[in-house]
Simulated assay, not measured.
Amino acid sequence: MRLSSNIITGRIPPELGQLTQVTGLYLDDNAIAGEIPRSLANLTSLQRMNLAQNRLTGKIPVEFLALKRLRYLNVSHNQLTGAIPDGAPLSTMDPENFAGNPGLCGKPLSPCPTKP
């Protein structure tokens, strides 16, 4: 599903998680805001997802660790925060795919600060 560069606004509809046969989801280069819905982890056939260059906030859902077929995830240039869920497939992605999110940390980026 390619919806890149369409000036889409609003939030990612959680109902997209019902499209379980989708192998690619491209929502990059829009004006999408809000959090990444956990329901996208239901896309068990997903191999590629690009959410870069939007206005996404919050954390990357830990449920994404269940996306065992995912080979490419790009969430760069958003406003995401917190630790990248630790484990494959996320920890093995290219660090550039997480760039431009100053509040994001953890593998494959720099370690998160430890609390004293």
Results as ranks from 00 to 15, higher is better:
Asn50Met: 07
Glu35Thr: 04
Arg69Val: 02
Leu65Lys: 01
Ala31Ile: 04
Tyr72Gly: 00
Asp86Gln: 14
Thr9Arg: 11
Ile84Cys: 09
Arg2Ser: 12
Gly106Asp: 12
Gln79Tyr: 05
Leu3His: 10
Asn6Trp: 08
Thr81Cys: 08
Thr20Ile: 15
Lys59Gly: 00
Cys105Tyr: 12
Asp86Asn: 11
Pro95Tyr: 01
Gly17Cys: 15
Leu51Cys: 13
Asn6Glu: 09
Leu104Gly: 10
Gln18Trp: 03
Ala33Asp: 08
Arg11Cys: 06
Gly58Gln: 09
Ser110Gln: 15
Ser110Lys: 15
Ala66His: 06
Ser4Thr: 14
Thr20Phe: 09
Glu63Gly: 00
Ser76Glu: 12
Pro14Gln: 03
Ile12Gly: 05
Tyr72Cys: 00
Ala52Val: 04
Asn74Pro: 02
Ser4Arg: 12
Leu40Asn: 02
Gly10Tyr: 05
Ser91Arg: 03
Pro37Glu: 08
Glu35Val: 10
Ser39Arg: 03
Arg48Ile: 04
Leu80Ile: 12
Pro89Thr: 00
Asn6Phe: 03
Glu35Arg: 07
Phe64Arg: 01
Gly82Pro: 13
Asp28Lys: 05
Leu19Asn: 09
Leu65Gly: 04
Asp29Glu: 10
Asn50Leu: 07
Gly17Gln: 13
Ile36Cys: 04
Leu40Phe: 13
Pro37His: 01
Gly34Asn: 01
Thr20Glu: 15
Lys68Asn: 06
Leu16Asn: 12
Cys112Leu: 10
Pro89Lys: 05
Leu73Ser: 00
Thr81Trp: 03
Ile7Tyr: 10
Phe98Ala: 02
Ser110Leu: 14
Leu40Gly: 04
Cys112Arg: 11
Arg69Glu: 12
Gln53Trp: 15
Ser39Ile: 04
Ile60Pro: 07
Gly34Trp: 02
Gly58Ile: 11
Asn50His: 05
Leu80Met: 12
Glu35Ala: 02
Leu25Asn: 08
Pro14Ile: 03
Thr20Asn: 10
Thr81Arg: 10
Cys112Asn: 11
Thr9Tyr: 00
Arg55Lys: 07
Gly34Gln: 01
Ser4Asn: 14
Ile36Leu: 03
Ile60Phe: 09
Gln79Asp: 10
Ser76Asn: 08
Thr9His: 12
Pro102Lys: 01
Thr92Phe: 00
Asn78Gln: 09
Pro14Phe: 11
Gly103Asn: 11
Asp94Thr: 02
Pro108Tyr: 09
Arg69His: 13
Leu104Met: 11
Asp94Asn: 14
Asp28Tyr: 11
Arg11Lys: 06
Leu25Met: 14
Pro89Cys: 12
Thr20His: 05
Asn97Lys: 01
Tyr72His: 13
Leu40Gln: 07
Pro113Gly: 10
Cys105Asp: 08
Pro102Thr: 08
Leu73Pro: 03
Ala88Met: 06
Gly82Ala: 07
Ala66Phe: 05
Leu70Glu: 02
Tyr26Asp: 14
Phe64Ile: 00
Asp86Met: 06
Pro85Trp: 02
Gly34Arg: 02
Leu16Glu: 06
Asp29Cys: 05
Leu67Asp: 04
Leu65Asn: 09
Asn30Pro: 07
Leu56Asn: 08
Ser110Asn: 15
Ser110Ala: 15
Leu46Ile: 03
Leu65Ile: 12
Ile60Met: 06
Ile36Gln: 06
Ile84Val: 15
Ile84Lys: 08
Gly103His: 08
Ser91Ile: 01
Leu70Tyr: 09
Met49Lys: 06
Cys105Lys: 13
Gly106Thr: 12
Asn50Val: 11
Pro102Ser: 02
Thr92Ser: 11
Pro89Ala: 05
Leu109Gln: 01
Lys68Gln: 15
Leu19Gln: 11
Ile36Phe: 07
Gly106Lys: 13
